[in-house]
Design a protein around this nucleic acid. Structure first.
Lengths: 222, 222
DNA sequence: ACATGTGCGGAACGGAACGTTCCGCTACTG
DNA sequence: CAGTAGCGGAACGTTCCGTTCCGCACATGT
């Protein structure tokens, strides 16, 4: 909340506003990652600004969430691209999962889905993300590094499970997720297949896509 | 909503009321398992009764949740006892996890915790449940069936992760959970330890116990 | 047959939470 | 020095939900 005007060409009020842009988005990310249905006032409080500063930038809560989700999708694609460029097939697969879990990117995407009307850009990025992850998985399976009976739609389910780990602060949760990611990785290795094939089949694209539809509250009948 | 008076000594109005006891509790279980913060009216609707029928039996929503949770803890203990009586150490371990996940008992216990003031009976049952699970785990580890670097507090985290799988109806979710439970089981086997030890340490009892404390809403600051 | 009270449906009530708007102030800008 | 961009936070209107309450229907006991 200081460093008056050394890092930007703008000064005074204008600079403060520019800085607030980032502060607010960071606060929103932190707050909504911890609680997707947190009130807008919580974001303002976390950012150390008033509510007006928020509504000056985003027309509605929905727009803020859509922006945040877009940001998350871009992070996912970035992580996936970096992972894909890893030479070793298992290394690439491992990098993908570790990257996604470490950045907690799942909380920024799927957990926000259904709370705003998705734009075409959301769709395009989600598709690209799926394509990259699928490529990494296929390569790892072709190299007999990852068991052959997992499918690409199983991966979001792994993220989903790890994102459900919420016990302490963000730091403690990150440590716990690393611990349990290690277990997931062990179960996905090719040699784990020796103990038996996976029953049933992974989610369909339709089942995964259904989350992006706007739906009311908690899902219980009125 | 029929069979007038053939299965109970009571008849007419009295029998209907007795039957409603079960209908309401079943409806409450179904509704709150799907959405822990569902409104009371949703339970009444699912049970096909009015709200009065509900409040005649439970003084408050909190009391209903406490009853439901007690019910869940008893189920857990029952499942754990049956598993413990399995001769094969790995079989017992497997039976425990399969039983807990199949009955979706986690949604009935921990997901309800924090929404009501726990009674001493909740504490006693939770302790008994922990004792049984710990015994089963230790036996499986002593037999070198389960990897040595998992601890008893890791098990609730496995349930937690599997309970987070919510895509379609209850039936589809159960099938998906069975699929991913298979992965978890593979990762917990002793031979999975060859690929490396688990980083960090499992949750402490204090971390797990903190969920039973009453806390406001979603966790975001006001 | 009739008075009685139990059990219940669902409207009504009171309060809490939240998204959004609006007023007024501050301090840069030109 | 007038004008205004940016903002803090109170206020507003709405939605949601737990709980209460009123009146009805029917089984029960005489």
């Amino acid at each position: 909340m200081s460093t008056p005007s050394t890092d930007a060409p703008l000064s005074g009020r204008r600079a403060q506003a520019a800085r607030n842009d980032a502060v607010i988005l960071d606060a929103a990310r932190e707050v909504f990652m911890a609680a997707p249905d947190a009130p807008v006032s919580a974001v303002a409080h976390a950012a150390g600004v008033g509510i007006s500063a928020l509504y000056r930038r985003y027309a509605s809560k929905e727009e803020l969430l859509a922006t945040l989700c877009l940001d998350g999708l871009r992070r996912f694609v970035e992580i996936a691209r970096a992972a894909r460029d890893t030479a070793d097939p298992w290394g690439a697969f491992e990098a993908l999962l570790r990257g996604v879990v470490d950045a907690d990117v799942h909380s920024l995407t799927v957990h926000l889905a259904g709370r705003f009307a998705p734009t075409p850009e959301h769709g395009a990025l989600a598709e690209e993300a799926g394509r990259l992850a699928g490529e990494i998985l296929r390569r790892a399976q072709d190299a007999r590094a990852v068991r052959s009976d997992v499918v690409d739609t199983d991966l979001p389910m792994v993220y989903e499970q790890l994102a459900a780990i919420r016990l302490g602060g963000p730091a403690r949760d990150a440590a716990l997720r690393r611990r349990y990611l290690e277990l997931h990785l062990a179960s996905l290795r090719a040699d784990a297949e020796a103990h038996g094939a996976l029953p049933g089949h992974g989610p369909s694209q339709a089942e995964l896509g259904a989350r992006w539809q706007r739906e009311a509250g908690t899902g219980a009948a009125r």
